[in-house]
Design a protein around this nucleic acid. Structure first.
Lengths: 142, 142
DNA sequence: CGATCGGATGTTATATCATAACATCTATCT
DNA sequence: AGATAGATGTTATGATATAACATCCGATCG
């Protein structure tokens, strides 16, 4: 299932595995923390691995969190949509073809040629919205 | 036209004016640079002013640039769409009601309750796309 | 084989973005 | 006067990201 266009290096594989295992966004420094003692001691190595993984479409960068997640369905679409719960930190990758088409249409209608489209929704996931029955939201996230 | 729900302080007004005059995204430190010598000497003041302006819907934060722009049509929508040219740095704020509705629909369909929706397109504006007739793209942006 | 090249990594230093924590000041309301 | 809310100042630090340059290693080719 997991199609890898290019072979991944040791570090790249480790980073991807860590992100997959986490199942949530990790910052470059979160990853660096987990890789210390495995011969990775400085930010550039992590950022370079992430850069490669993003190029390959295996990892997404979530701009509003300054963090990275393993792509749930590696496909290299240059289009990612995320719903980010500000309460519990849950991040869900959504796929919505019509939305992508509409974005592309809006984009080209204005003469803009999009190479990357980011959609990030902030709010509360179903579970947290249910819990918050009116009593104040005491945001956490992270 | 410009509806201000709350009166703005001196600093807040200056920041908004600087952003409006710039007509492009400025970082908090860009603003700080312009405000030194006007009694503003430290980041927190700028960030606090920006925070207020964003709350009021007068300024948007562009996540993928870590920068701020004056809202082209102050309305407090919690929804912003930007097309960012990676070549010349031009940032255009787009409004597309159907897109907003579709996003809201997709969001609620999955039980997610969105309080903020961010859409950022990266690519080339019409002018730059026209210029780049095949000869290599030598990205600039900033 | 030895040369060369691309890709990955190491290493050091620094740039850039953002906030914590605490003090002060002023306007307004009571 | 006392209380409150909002804005700001000030110092320090935390968090994120990259520049610049050196090295290493495996593949390819003459």
């Amino acid at each position: 299932m997991t199609v890898r266009r290019q072979p991944l290096s040791q570090t790249q594989t480790r980073v991807l595995d860590l992100l997959s295992a986490a199942g949530r966004p990790l910052s470059a420094y979160d990853l660096l923390g987990k890789l210390r003692g495995e011969g990775v001691n400085a930010p550039p190595t992590v950022y370079r691995a992430l850069e490669k993984l993003v190029r390959e479409g295996l990892v997404h960068r979530i701009e509003s969190l300054n963090a990275f997640v393993a792509c749930s369905t590696p496909h290299h679409h240059d289009m990612a949509t995320f719903a980010i719960c500000d309460q519990c930190g849950l991040v869900t990758e959504l796929t919505d073809r019509p939305l992508q088409e509409q974005l592309a249409a809006m984009s080209s209608r204005s003469g803009f040629h999009a190479t990357r489209m980011m959609v990030e929704l902030r709010g509360h996931c179903a579970a947290c919205a249910a819990k918050a029955h009116g009593h104040g939201a005491s945001d956490h996230a992270h």
